[in-house]
Design a binder for these strands. Structure first.
Lengths: 161, 161
DNA sequence: ATCAATCATTACTTTTTAGTCAAGATTGAA
DNA sequence: TTCAATCTTGACTAAAAAGTAATGATTGAT
């Protein structure tokens, strides 16, 4: 279970925009420089994010990108959903085995685990805004673990099979 | 954030073995048939799982695969770690940008989120055994959500940035 | 000893994802 | 108007993941 390059760098680009002051913008070369990727790659990511409505852009001299909404109103789960191309809903459709369709559609003990994992990830991401990701690592780390801490207040215990 | 084919089908193959009675084994063609994948593909997965010590095998007529340990002693996080090739520890090394190294090693607000997501997934998987995945979908679903339920007893609340 | 059934291993092909390139369109400034 | 800076878009290339094929090794039955 891993985050894709598209998810990670898409998110990073948005965080850069969240750092901007009012009226400021970033160009593709600037974003590329900040994130250590090529301008072409940044362009592709911003194109996706623009289509999805997270950013606006202006062309020409002094042009650039900026967030379409305030950073504290953008939750990470929305962003990831776009960058991840809605994997979950089509899980059993994207099956590539030898059979016509996924052999596990009938009754399948693994699907609830896969769906469940996506649920807890979604749940965590839905509690974090772009604005919360602005700042240094230790601050964000503390914020994230405070959220996680909600999950840990009850002593973990094994559940009978 | 998604589960890879290798993770999913590796896990599925192990669940098939967990279904067996004492002394029973499954051959590659049998596993392949049960999961709707090719025998070659099943062979590759079982090879990985064998190397990692989750299964044993015997060759020749009447040969096949069986679990190396009781299913209720194998936790999913161990399995996924092997099938996922230890993504987390090398996250910033696998960076493919234009710079020599990840530009975010110094101080990076996104890393704690990525690391944190892996933590909560790991945490969930470490509470589920292979044995718990044997059975029908609704049973496993109930089991998973009982585990998740541990996380939900305290009212979710937004945390200040 | 022979043979068929089975796993083991490596190399190869296909598909998907990631990243680049190039031509086009828009904007603002001189 | 002209031009340079900028975004936009689709096609292309490269890399990684997934899946297949082929050859070899081991085992058990006859």
């Amino acid at each position: 279970m891993k985050i894709s390059a598209q998810e990670e760098y898409g998110l990073r680009c948005l965080v850069q925009l969240a750092n901007l002051g009012d009226g400021e913008t970033l160009t593709l070369p600037q974003i590329a420089e900040l994130e250590g990727i090529s301008a072409a790659n940044a362009g592709k990511l911003m194109w996706l994010l623009n289509k999805a409505g997270f950013v606006h852009s202006t062309r020409g001299t002094k042009g650039g990108y900026f967030l379409a909404r305030p950073a504290d109103e953008i939750y990470l789960n929305e962003i990831i959903k776009v960058l991840d191309e809605d994997v979950l809903s089509s899980h059993c459709d994207s099956y590539t085995g030898v059979k016509e369709k996924c052999v596990h559609t009938g009754d399948c003990g693994i699907r609830p685990v896969i769906v469940g994992l996506h649920e807890i990830v979604e749940n965590a991401l839905s509690r974090i805004t772009l604005a919360q990701m602005v700042g240094n690592e230790s601050k964000v780390d503390a914020m994230f673990h405070q959220i996680q801490g909600i999950h840990k207040t009850i002593e973990p215990q094994r559940v009978a099979g």
